[in-house]
Computed example of a mutant assay.
Amino acid sequence: MKIGIFRALYLGDILCSIPAIRHLKYHYPDSCIYYIGLPHLRDFVMRFSFIDFYIDFPGCEGLPEQEVVESEVQRFIREGKEEEFDLLIQMHGNGTIVNDFLGQLEAKRLVGFSPETNLDPVDWFPYPESAHEVHRHFQLLKHIGIPAENFNEQLEYPIFVGECQDFEALKEVYGFSEYVVFHVGAKSELRRWPIQNFALLAKYLKKYNLKIVCTGTTAEYAHVKEFINLIGENCINLAGLTGYGSLGCIIRDAKLLVSNCTGVSHIAAALKTKSIIISLDGEPERWGPLNMDLHVTFNGLEPLSIESIFRRIDKFLQGS
């Protein structure tokens, strides 16, 4: 059985869909699962053992994630038809744009989310606006007939042996062992909590005598540097210096992650690292980590007491 999964989104979005994809493979162990996603995330997605193949998605009109080259789109459609998918699942979003587009691949069965309620109720599931992102995909699987037994909502983030060895070398070079991770960046500036507020948290943490390790992309290096300038010594800037494996190791071994609501918050959820997440997307109930014993999500769009975050820091670190 050849199954295609369409979800051409970013790292955090992918991690939130992993429990559903894993569950799908559990019930169809002999199937071949093809993930259709953004080209630059191929290496990340292929870390998951239950995903067999990856197909680069070239974009389509109306989706903001990448620039569209029409010749590449036509090649994608042509090659997608040749795959002859037995099942193609649209997990990208509510389907306003992509459902008709995916229909051009002529899968034997196309299913997924839909913004409408008048479509075939067997194949199309009205998009649940209020569900948590992890549960949303599980609801879709149940709707199309995948048994619910043994569903596990825990995220996962594979780390390989060689990456652990590289991480140990990185720690030796930069000289850190007991530390807290700060991730002050996010793709959109609108989802970045002011670094002055992050600096207040970092200064409060000094009483715990922990190093502060800053992560981020190369593009976020200057933003991270500005944050470090506010807090002074005892801080390490690793922005732009980590791959998927080393980033996972850094978060896995941290005493705590403090972050905007972005991909690293889901990595912490997958690796069961305690975290304090500041949500500026207006949907903390959708994107916040599910395990509230390990993770606390604060809605940064509402009045927020810095003392309440201090208390949560103390609860996490004094109990560790």
Rank of each mutant, 00 (worst) to 15 (best):
E129V: 10
E129S: 13
E129I: 07
E129L: 10
S130Y: 08
S130G: 04
S130F: 09
H132E: 09
H132N: 12
E133A: 07
V134F: 10
V134H: 07
V134T: 06
V134N: 00
V134I: 15
H135D: 07
H135A: 11
H135L: 14
H135C: 06
R136S: 05
R136H: 05
R136V: 04
H137V: 03
H137D: 09
H137E: 08
F138R: 03
F138S: 02
F138I: 04
Q139E: 11
Q139R: 14
L140N: 00
L140S: 07
L140E: 03
L141A: 14
L141W: 15
K142T: 14
H143P: 06
I144F: 01
I144E: 00
I144Q: 00
G145P: 01
G145M: 02
G145L: 05
P147L: 07
P147E: 06
P147A: 06
A148S: 03
A148K: 00
A148H: 04
A148L: 06
E149Y: 05
N150S: 09
N150P: 05
F151T: 01
N152M: 06
E153M: 01
E153I: 03
L155K: 04
E156K: 02
E156Q: 06
E156R: 02
Y157R: 04
Y157G: 05
Y157K: 03
P158D: 02
I159L: 14
I159D: 00
I159N: 04
F160G: 00
V161Q: 11
G162Q: 13
G162P: 12
E163G: 11
E163I: 10
E163D: 09
E163L: 04
C164P: 08
Q165P: 10
Q165N: 14
Q165H: 13
D166G: 10
F167C: 08
F167T: 05
F167V: 09
F167L: 03
E168G: 02
E168A: 09
E168M: 09
E168K: 07
E168D: 01
A169C: 07
A169R: 13
A169P: 02
A169M: 11
A169Y: 13
A169L: 10
L170W: 10
L170E: 12
K171M: 15
K171Y: 10
K171S: 05
K171F: 12
E172Y: 11
V173R: 07
Y174G: 12
Y174E: 12
G175F: 07
G175N: 03
F176D: 00
F176P: 00
S177I: 13
E178N: 14
Y179N: 01
Y179P: 05
Y179S: 03
Y179A: 07
V180K: 08
V180R: 05
V180D: 08
V181F: 02
V181E: 00
F182M: 05
H183C: 05
H183T: 00
H183R: 05
H183M: 02
V184G: 04
V184K: 02
V184Y: 04
V184Q: 00
K187P: 11
S188D: 12
E189R: 13
E189K: 13
E189W: 13
E189H: 14
E189F: 12
L190V: 12
L190K: 15
R192L: 06
W193T: 04
W193Y: 12
W193S: 09
W193G: 07
W193I: 08
P194N: 03
I195D: 01
I195A: 06
Q196H: 12
Q196K: 11
N197V: 02
N197G: 08
N197C: 02
F198Q: 03
F198A: 02
A199Q: 15
L200I: 13
L200K: 15
L200A: 13
L200D: 06
